[in-house]
Design a protein around this nucleic acid. Sequence first.
DNA 1: TTATGATATACCTATTTTAGTATATACTGT
DNA 2: ACAGTATATACTAAAATAGGTATATCATAA
Lengths: 127, 127
Amino acid sequence: MEASEIYKCIADPQRLRILNLLDGGSLCVCHLQTIIDIPQVKASKQLAIMKQIGLLESHREGTWMVYSLAQPVHGLLRVNLDYLLQADCSECNQLQCDLLARKQLIQQITQDSPDCPTAVCAPQPCC
Amino acid sequence: MEASEIYKCIADPQRLRILNLLDGGSLCVCHLQTIIDIPQVKASKQLAIMKQIGLLESHREGTWMVYSLAQPVHGLLRVNLDYLLQADCSECNQLQCDLLARKQLIQQITQDSPDCPTAVCAPQPCC
DNA sequence: TTATGATATACCTATTTTAGTATATACTGT
DNA sequence: ACAGTATATACTAAAATAGGTATATCATAA
């Protein structure tokens, strides 16, 4: 995986937000849609791009596709996610809000609909 | 300066090489051209882009335009240049080669043509 | 087997980015 | 004022990227 490919990915704020969210744990497409507030087709396309170059993995659970960061997380991505989370800029704050929104969404899901993807809800501290 | 602007810059291998070279010290356009081996117009454009968003500064010395990293170097750029220099990938090796080529070129300039830009040659360890 | 929910893909258009050529500017030395 | 060197800008064509609509796939449940 070339460095420039990774940079192209994270140069897009939506893709960066997706990577940051998945760094917090696996999520399925619809949850990413909800948190980032983008149309389904766009979420799907962005995920495909990142899976293509090997940043993401996915597996199916019923009708859900659960996406996660490919392990081990590429060092370059690691360094940047870590930097951005502790830095102070508008995009960085967004990433923190996203992680919060992620937490709340998962809490809500596990309460309201016990049939959520186990990969998403089971391993979370909230469950 | 937004994170995504910086990422867009370094997502282009040539721009990344320029930033890395300038991290080693100021250079004028013609030297960047020589080391990276790109046409004048392209070097000039890439530099203009990065100056525009505030990553680079420049000053004139005679007919030369001497470019340098804007100080203090943005944390996000710092983190990435540092990471790439110690990492092992084709693009990363390129960056190391470039720094070597930079050193040699400056040695050569200071020997052959003593009328080089002082900002380029004077403060270097090679002079 | 059919209907539904979740996701992916195809296709088209609009926008942005890149690359190249030509030309302009700015400074220096004569 | 003129020629030469270094750099910047204008303009255009080509390529890559993004966005939207429609449609396809795939699994589930009735």
